[in-house]
Write a protein that binds this DNA or RNA. Structure first.
Lengths: 203, 203
DNA sequence: GTCTATAAATCGATAGAC
DNA sequence: GTCTATCGATTTATAGAC
């Protein structure tokens, strides 16, 4: 049953208010204590609700984290098709999904807002303890590459550089390159990071 | 202003005060109007001195820009040896100089300060209109690569990603890699951007 | 001193009552 | 929609064996 549109003045304790209270509490906690440092119980407590409610509204802790980040898309959903098909051509498939999201004008503003927040206090810790283990590593595991904890950060280094040059600094000619040229330019780099020869100990 | 009113050993209008006044005026102008938008005359005027004095203290506009950036080193100086020897191995030579500077603990704080200022208002414009033409392109020209205006930004994209992951986010294992491993990992990428096959029109 | 085993506490997540 | 109860897994702390 969906609520009738146009209804205002919800009573206290209704779903929208509770959901928002949880979300704000989560944002504050993630920003202050990082991903690992925030507990569902603490978020629930700060929002004045029970811990089970957090799961009821947001599912897992990972889902709550993604909701708190205000990502315009769920990377796990849009990337899912690119993760099938094995390691061959994985870099190109990844890049095409990446470009379809970042080149979408509607997505750019919220995404750029996220990028800027990385340099805020706690943003780095959030990236390291939250984004990496719940976004980056699962991608590597889905691709079944070896040493994902070593190779995915390398991929991240070039992707971050691409984000900075193409979307933040808008450095030419990268900023104006067609999607095909971006793929032709960067896919070989990413493919090598995913599956090429690298100095990895104990391999 | 850190100088107390009155005497400091030098009379008012002496070289140290004038130099500093020019430098602060230049910083304000570069930050507000970008590299191309600031003129030596305007900097001099805001500092209350003659334009010729700016050249007397700082040499060229490029030198003034570098001084205003408060770079702990002059990239043109430290990179000079790496630019000799032709294109073979240029990526590795570049990376070794890069690491010798960025891995120096004394350099990191001012360099990281610069990185953070990039996302401030005007910082992006400063990077695009200042850093690129007077730092990045001259490096490419010294290396005598073809299409430096196309290839150097590609190099920049991976170097920026390296800076972000190794020094800003401190993402493992990149943050703890030895210099040799950094070179072995990233030099092939940079070498391809400098001299490898790329989708460049009219080549 | 180092390692291992086990106990205690905490957390994420689910099921079901109201 | 909200909460109680509880499971299973992970982490932390402690104790004992070598």
């Amino acid at each position: 049953m969906s609520a009738p549109a146009g209804r205002r003045g919800r009573r206290p304790g209704s779903s929208a208010d509770t959901r928002l209270a949880i979300l704000e509490s989560a944002r504050a906690s993630f920003a202050e204590r990082g991903y690992a440092g925030t507990t569902i119980r603490a978020v629930a407590g700060a929002a004045g609700v029970d811990a089970a409610l957090v799961h009821h509204y947001f599912g897992s802790k990972d889902d709550l984290f993604l909701a708190a980040l205000a990502l315009p898309v769920d990377p796990r959903v849009v990337l899912a098709p690119a993760l099938e098909g094995g390691i061959d051509g994985a870099a190109e498939r990844f890049l095409r999904v990446f470009l379809s999201v970042w080149d979408d004008p509607e997505m750019q503003l919220p995404l750029l807002g996220l990028v800027r927040s990385v340099l805020d206090p706690g943003g780095v810790e959030l990236l390291r303890s939250g984004f990496v283990p719940i976004i980056l590593l699962p991608i590597g595991q889905a691709l079944r590459i070896d040493h994902p904890e070593h190779r995915m950060p390398l991929l991240a280094s070039q992707v971050i550089g691409l984000i900075m040059t193409r979307y933040v600094i808008r450095l030419e000619p990268i900023a104006s390159m067609t999607a095909d040229d971006v793929v032709a330019t960067f896919a070989p780099t990413l493919q090598r990071y995913l599956a090429g020869d690298l100095p990895i100990e104990g391999d």
